[in-house]
Design a protein around this nucleic acid. Structure first.
Lengths: 260, 260
DNA sequence: GGTGTTTGCTAACGGCGTTCACTAAAGCGT
DNA sequence: ACGCTTTAGTGAACGCCGTTAGCAAACACC
């Protein structure tokens, strides 16, 4: 029996696969650091190779180009964000749905403002991607991230917290698309009306908007601390969903000595 | 009397200044086209120079580098967007405030989805800008763009269409920032309470969010036609402001033959 | 016509992604 | 232990990029 057969029998990756995997994650790690330090355009194969003590063409054994590398680390970042949100969610007792949602949404913002470079490549404009490069990995990871919120919303829905709007503006075609999306989330989708998915989308859009605005710093000339605006949006949003809002325990913008 | 003195006396720019201005706008025009066709990273001084029949270093007589060129065309795009919105606004009778607002916001979305590359550089993440480059021109143009909506909101406010929220979450520091912003808009700011600016910011964030989501195509796997979601957001948003919503006259997503 | 300014060029440096031909090593079967 | 195959990595090269420095022609002005 050969060694590779032996390894495969146990299901353990061969030595070759292990060291290869290690090199790949070293590449991704350095790329990630360069992304954080210098932005998307600061990620270059040559610089990564230089730092690893190799030459740029060698990296093509691991990555099919700079674009696919960016897609790879984008996928990693999505799962990382999903983990961060899931962890925050798990820190709250299971039955406290309202607080779980509140905590999860705040965790999303917190991760975003502490990882602005990552957030920008994940949720910013889809630029610098050849139509050649296949964004499938990032899309898949993004879908799993979306599922995080989807689960919470699903519970909210089953508890009938809020009235569903009438789907006047939902055309048959749109309804079909919404259905397809719900199915792709891998849930027991049939019981979910399309109007609910519309509501979920609307909420997601609002959360996305306020966080993007903060991360991309497009309201800097109006306000520097965006937390009040975020909390205000959160309050409106959750109230519309029938979720009880509670102000954050300790806010950085809390002013000591001026109790209102 | 010299020629330049003669020209300056009339207030007309000298020939030199004219041809220089023409060259600069040719540069910006080609850069703009490359931006639309290939995205931000597709704008290069060398390519522009090649197309103009010059060499790249020659462009440095007109532009201090690629970053400042991008800032210049960003400023142009902001004024262009502001003009588009203002034009739509002007197409509605002056006294019909509600319809003017509705039309202006729809014009904003329309411009965005028809100029996705421009929108991405204007409202996307602030990347690819050295701390060296001075973004003042773009910021100034952006401010003038913001003033467009600010005027409409100002009228809405003076008509007392909606109740102001209580500013529990507005810290003194934030209030000062909001004041500074209102002043910078060049309006008769003193009569505007900070709570109102908070409301305006919230509305802007929601509009920004839904349009960004559409332009950046981050909901593509959920729905392809975002107009229903946009209109739904618009309806919620305007209702909260006490503005009467009216569905668009002819929607691309309108389904003929299935009247509801 | 002489003078200073403006304009654009060439040459050059360093950095980038990517391809290709090639070597050295590691793994594998016998 | 020995060939054979697969893999990892190198060096050279091509063409792109931004940017700087030095230089020559065109121009405006007196």
């Amino acid at each position: 029996m050969t060694k590779s057969q032996l390894d495969r029998g146990i299901g353990r990756p061969t030595r070759r696969e292990r060291v290869r995997e290690a090199t790949l994650s070293e590449i991704k790690g350095i790329a990630r650091r360069h992304l954080v330090e210098n932005g998307t355009s600061g990620v270059s194969l040559r610089a990564i190779a230089r730092e690893m003590g190799m030459t740029a063409p060698g990296l093509y054994r691991y990555v099919s180009g700079i674009d696919s590398l960016l897609i790879l680390i984008t996928a990693d970042m999505f799962t990382e964000l999903a983990d961060a949100v899931a962890e925050a969610d798990a820190s709250v007792p299971d039955e406290e749905t309202d607080l779980r949602i509140l905590t999860s949404l705040r965790a999303f913002r917190s991760w975003a403002i502490h990882h602005t470079a990552e957030f920008a490549t994940m949720f910013g404009p889809r630029a610098r991607l050849d139509p050649e490069a296949d964004p499938a990995p990032a899309l898949e990871a993004g879908r799993r991230f979306g599922a995080t919120f989807y689960t919470l919303f699903d519970r909210l829905l089953s508890e009938e917290r809020f009235p569903l709007p009438d789907g006047d503006r939902i055309t048959p075609e749109l309804a079909r698309e919404l259905r397809a999306f719900a199915d792709s989330c891998g849930f027991s989708a049939p019981h979910i009306p399309v109007e609910a998915i519309m509501v979920l989308s609307s909420c997601w859009v609002r959360l996305y908007g306020v966080v993007c605005m903060e991360v991309f710093q497009h309201l800097d000339f109006v306000m520097h601390d965006m937390e009040p605006l975020f909390e205000s949006e959160l309050q409106n949003l959750l109230t519309g969903l029938g979720v009880r809002y509670r102000p954050p325990e300790s806010s950085t913008s809390a002013t000591i000595g001026t109790p209102s």
